[in-house]
Amino acid sequence: MTIPVEITINGKACAGEVEPRQLLVHFIRENAGLTGTKVGCDTSQCGTCTVQLDGVSAKACTVLTVQASGSSVTTIEGLSDGVDLHPLQEAFWNNHGLQCGFCTPGMIMAANELLSRNPSPSREEIRHGLEGNICRCTGYQNIVSAVEDAAKSMGGR
């Protein structure tokens, strides 16, 4: 049995008929076709499926699509207009804040919420704010530097 849902993703209404057990991350990737959001551990630990759900970060592998019906979602694709990079994306690029890139969408979405709450975090606060996001490549140093750099260029935006 399927249920009709409608979720606003990156400002655009996305309607679909889904099984109640479908996870939001699969709706985003398969129904909306936005594959920036990744499925990693699938146990709400690694954070690569992090999106903004009604304004706050959420792990899309631990939310049912039907739960989110009527809500607004922002994914990594929604951060920039497609021409200019978001300052966080720019900073991850400039600081080599990624190697394989699999964790990056979630890292940036989590960092985005961190900076919205705390526009100039210390390196320690950045580490604490990103503790729900796991990277297996970088050793985190450059990720922390990237967020620090983005905070400066966003200037409390």
Partner: peptide
Amino acid sequence: VGDPAVRNR
């Protein structure tokens, strides 16, 4: 509890 995203939900 958990991490920031877990605490939000």
